[in-house]
C-alpha cells in the first residue's frame, strides 16, 4: 500500500521518517511482539544513517535529505486470532501470523504530479506509483502557525495550504479517473477512498498566543473525538483550503472523510536565557530497562500512527491488494 508523504520545505519530513523508524525499532522489539517491520536495503541504509545521527543528538543533514526519493517499510501486524495461538504455532510460516502492508513515502515535487495529471505522462516513474496511494500523510509545520498576518510564516502557510489542496485534488482526480476507467472496462471496483493522515509537526513550537486566539488549551487531547476537534480547529485556520477539499471529497466521488490526526515533536537542547547557537541538538532519554539513549520524542503518537495502518490495512479495496500482489510477483519473477 503506497503512502504519500506531503510536506513543505523544512517541515520536518526526514525527521518525521527518522522518528517513525525509531518508533518502529522500539515498538517492534517490545515484549508484546505483535508488530514487526522490514525495510529494503536502500531504505535501511538511509534510515539507519538518520537514526544513528538522531541517537547522536543530530537532526538529519541536508545531504541525507537529498538522497531520499522513496523510502519503504513493510509493516507486519500480528493477526488477532494468531495472537491467541501457542507460540510454537505462531512461529510456523504456514500459519501466516502477520498481515503485512507496505508503507512507502515518496519525496516528489508538486510540479511533477501536475505534469502527470495534465498530460498523462510522468517524467518520473515514481509519480504514477505515488498517485496510487491510499494513504496521504500531510505534514503541517506548527512552527509556521502564526496569526500575525504581516509575517513571512503567515504567507508561507497560505502558500502551503494552496499546494496541499492542489495535491489532494490531484489525488482525487487520479482516483476518480482510475475508478471510471475500471468501471468502463467492466470491472466493478469499490468506490474510491483516500485516508488522509495529518501530522502536526514541531508541535512543541506552537505558540501560546495562537492557542489562546483559537481558544485551545496546551497539549493534545487523548480522546479520539477531542483530538479530531483540536486538530481541525488548527487546520481550519491555517490550511482551510486543504480541509475544505478533504471534506468535499465525497462530492467529487472520492471519500476522504476518515482523516486521522497525529502530532510530532522532538525535544531539543536549550540553555536557559540563551538563544541556541548553530544547529539545535536533540535531547536523548536516559538509559532504562526498556531502552534508552534515544531521541526524546512523541513516541506514543508514532505508535498510534503505526497502529492506524493496522486499521487501514483491513479496509483496503481488493483490487489494490491484487495489484500489489501482482507487482510483488513480477518483481521476484526471473526475466
Amino acid at each position: 500500500m503506497p503512502c504519500a508523504l506531503l510536506g513543505d520545505r523544512a517541515s520536518g519530513k526526514t525527521t518525521f521518517l527518522g522518528l517513525l523508524y525509531s518508533a518502529q525499532v522500539k515498538y517492534g522489539t517490545g515484549v508484546h511482539d505483535d508488530f514487526r517491520f522490514h525495510a529494503p536495503m536502500a531504505s535501511l541504509n538511509i534510515m539507519s544513517a538518520v537514526y544513528e545521527g538522531m541517537k547522536d543528538a543530530r537532526f538529519p543533514s541536508a545531504t541525507l535529505k537529498e538522497e531520499i526519493t522513496e523510502l519503504s517499510f513493510i509493516f507486519g501486524y500480528l493477526r488477532k486470532v494468531q495472537g491467541k495461538l501457542p507460540y510454537y504455532i505462531r512461529q510456523q510460516n504456514w500459519s501466516k501470523p502477520f498481515s503485512t502492508l507496505r508503507f512507502s513515502a515518496y519525496d516528489v515535487s508538486g510540479e511533477d504530479i501536475e505534469e502527470f495529471i495534465e498530460s498523462g505522462i510522468a517524467s518520473r516513474p515514481l509519480i504514477q506509483q505515488l498517485l496510487k496511494s491510499v494513504v496521504v500523510v500531510v505534514l503541517v509545520d506548527c512552527s509556521k502557525m502564526t496569526t500575525d498576518i504581516d509575517t513571512a510564516p503567515y504567507k508561507k502557510m497560505l502558500r502551503y495550504d494552496s499546494t496541499v489542496a492542489k495535491l489532494l485534488v490531484a489525488f482525487q482526480t487520479y482516483k476518480k479517473q482510475e475508478y471510471d476507467r475500471l468501471k468502463d472496462s467492466g470491472v466493478n471496483p469499490e468506490a474510491p477512498m483516500i485516508y488522509p493522515a495529518f501530522v502536526l509537526s514541531k508541535f512543541d513550537t506552537l505558540r501560546d498566543d495562537v492557542l489562546a486566539r483559537l481558544g485551545l488549551h496546551q497539549g493534545f487531547p487523548e480522546d479520539k473525538r477531542a483530538r479530531k476537534e483540536y486538530a481541525e480547529a488548527l487546520l481550519r485556520v491555517f490550511v482551510p483550503q486543504t480541509l475544505s477539499q478533504i471534506r468535499g471529497g465525497k462530492v467529487a466521488g472520492v471519500s476522504m472523510d476518515k482523516a486521522a490526526y497525529f502530532l510530532s515533536w522532538v525535544r531539543t537542547e536549550t540553555q536557559e536565557g540563551m538563544e541556541p547557537v548553530g544547529q539545535p541538538r536533540i535531547v536523548r532519554t536516559g538509559f532504562r530497562p526498556e531502552g534508552g539513549g534515544e531521541p526524546d520524542f512523541s513516541y506514543d503518537e508514532y505508535v498510534n500512527f503505526i497502529e492506524h495502518f493496522r486499521h487501514i490495512a483491513n479496509k483496503i479495496p481488493d483490487e489494490i491488494l491484487e495489484a500489489e500482489k501482482f507487482q510483488a510477483q513480477s518483481l521476484v519473477r526471473p526475466n
Binding site: I117, A165, K166, V169, A170, Q172, T173, E232, L235, R236, P240, Q241, L243, S244, Q245, R247, G248, G249, K250, V251, A252
Partner: peptide, 19 residues
Amino acid sequence: ALVSSGSDKEDDLRFHVAY
C-alpha cells in the same frame, strides 16, 4: 466563502474544485 463554509464543522456546504 466556499472555503470558509466548506471547511466548517457544520455540514451545510461541501464543495470540490476541478483540478
